[in-house]
Design a protein around this nucleic acid. Structure first.
Length: 405
RNA sequence: GCACAGGUGGGUGAGUGGUUAAAGCCGGCAGACUGUAAAUCUGCUCCUCCUUGCGAGGUACGAAGGUUCGAAUCCUUCCCUGUGCA
């Protein structure tokens, strides 16, 4: 058993449900914060728990480079390593095939990367990406794909799609053979003494997760779930073909990749629509790398169940905050004397406590706290947004943006 | 008082006769950010005007004079700062 997906309510193409993973249940549609290097930049795990985050993203390529899979595996896998007992999804490194354009060479066999850390050469293939992801031990792992760049001509889009399909088959084949090698049960067995309390966190009353709890691995019978990724560039016909052939290979969940790579938003929406309709109704649909608050609502309404994006966290670190009144660039001089809350409609710990003037001051002064607080707010806003979306779907209504326009 | 070394745009600091309204950095003001090489990146930052342009004027490198076709750059005097000696 890897994951289970239960749809509990629907409204048009939108659906709300539960994704049950070896590390907990995830309410869908869900927004997954990105924690590339086993850390959501600036935010500790207990705050993520407080925000209600049920699943996080990690990145294969980055974790493979540092600290390295062997290290993570020996430490009991990603959950144990990063002290995160809830669900994790790792991206395969497919996006780095796109984003590290100048540092990589793509061949049939796989992708040769030059490390951005020290220039050393590394090779990632469907097999090694699976091996790495199994070693990291996320609940959901992704097939190794090529994220097609934009713009790309017809020939390029097809070639890239075909490559991703061949890689999907190889990913699945390797995964099926090795899926029992997850580190969950291996590290902490009954015969491995856990140094109890040694690193116990302070104020146990406030922190729900203790170090010991984290070490209690899941049932050894459980395995990870490998998702396939649909590519096909900006061509609806190719998207359909990619979806059908990926489904033909057979996965417990399907992602839509290759979007949000510089194309106009209208086109993104068209391709999402054109792709979603060809995905199975009973498995989770994951739209990779999106979006703004308005967009994630829109995509959920189109029937997307899972999304992730660096936007809320990165924008926060850059002073861009999402609120029910729209975007706020907290670094602007106009907020220097503004003693009101960042977003009066938001009840997050930042909006409850701090003024815009203070947040602006923290940002202007380059205080680390600015990034922490900004990130907490943005993530909180995104999670609230998705909660509202789920609520709307449960009521059989179409979700709309909080501001109500 | 004497001897050196200096005084440059909001700050620091280049420039030592001619595409210099004056590099770079900081500060200031905007903008961008979408499966994270991002606490990052981009633009603007003397004044006025317009057709917003490798646009037109004006003012500007402590002060005042001078040399020169031309001075932040050379000369004279003065003012100020730092260091050393009295």
């Amino acid at each position: 058993m890897s994951i289970q997906f239960q749809i509990e309510a629907a409204s048009g193409p939108a659906r709300a449900g539960k994704l049950i993973t070896p590390h907990g249940t995830v309410q869908t549609p869900v927004f997954m914060p990105v924690g590339t290097l086993a850390s959501v930049k600036g935010i500790s795990q207990d705050i993520l728990e407080e925000l209600g985050v049920e699943i996080l993203l990690g990145n294969t390529y980055h974790l493979y480079l540092r600290p390295g899979v062997d290290q993570v595996r020996q430490l009991g896998g990603l959950h144990s390593f990063m002290a995160w007992p809830r669900a994790i999804l790792t991206d395969s490194g497919g996006f780095q095939v796109f984003s590290l354009n100048d540092l990589r060479t793509v061949t049939e066999e796989g992708v040769k990367f030059r490390s951005h850390l020290d220039g050393s050469s590394h090779f990632l293939s469907p097999e090694s990406a699976m091996e790495t992801q199994i070693g990291l031990g996320a609940d959901i792992i992704m097939a190794f794909d090529e994220c097609t760049e934009y713009p790309a001509d017809d020939g390029r889009m097809r070639k890239s799609m075909e490559l991703t399909l061949r890689w999907a088959e190889r990913s699945k084949e390797y995964f099926e053979e090795h899926k029992r090698e997850v580190p969950w049960g291996n590290h902490v067995g009954p015969d491995v003494p856990v140094s109890a309390g040694e690193r116990q966190v302070a104020s146990p009353g406030q922190v729900r997760t203790s170090f010991d709890e984290l070490r209690t691995g899941s049932a050894p019978t459980q395995t990870q779930a490998l998702f396939g990724i649909v590519q096909g560039g900006m061509d609806p016909a190719l998207r359909k073909e990619s979806a059908e052939r990926t489904i033909g290979i057979g996965f417990p969940g399907y992602a839509i990749g290759g979007l949000s790579v510089g194309e106009p938003r209208k086109l993104t929406r068209e391709i999402v629509e054109a792709t979603v309709q060809h995905l199975p109704g009973d498995t989770p649909r994951y739209l990779m790398g999106v979006g703004t608050p308005e967009e994630i609502i829109e995509y959920a309404n189109l029937g997307i169940d899972m999304m992730d994006c660096v936007l809320p966290t990165r924008a926060a670190r850059h002073g861009l905050l999402f609120t029910s009144q729209g975007k706020i660039s907290i670094k602007q001089a106009r907020y220097a004397g503004d003693d009101g809350p960042l977003d009066p409609a938001c009840s997050c710990r930042v909006c409850r406590r701090y003024s815009r003037a203070y947040l602006r001051h923290l940002y202007a002064s380059n205080e680390i706290l600015a990034q922490v607080l900004n990130t907490i707010h943005n993530l909180s806003f995104y999670l609230d947004t998705m909660r509202a979306v789920r609520h709307s779907i449960a009521l059989g209504k179409k979700a709309c943006f909080l501001s109500g326009e």
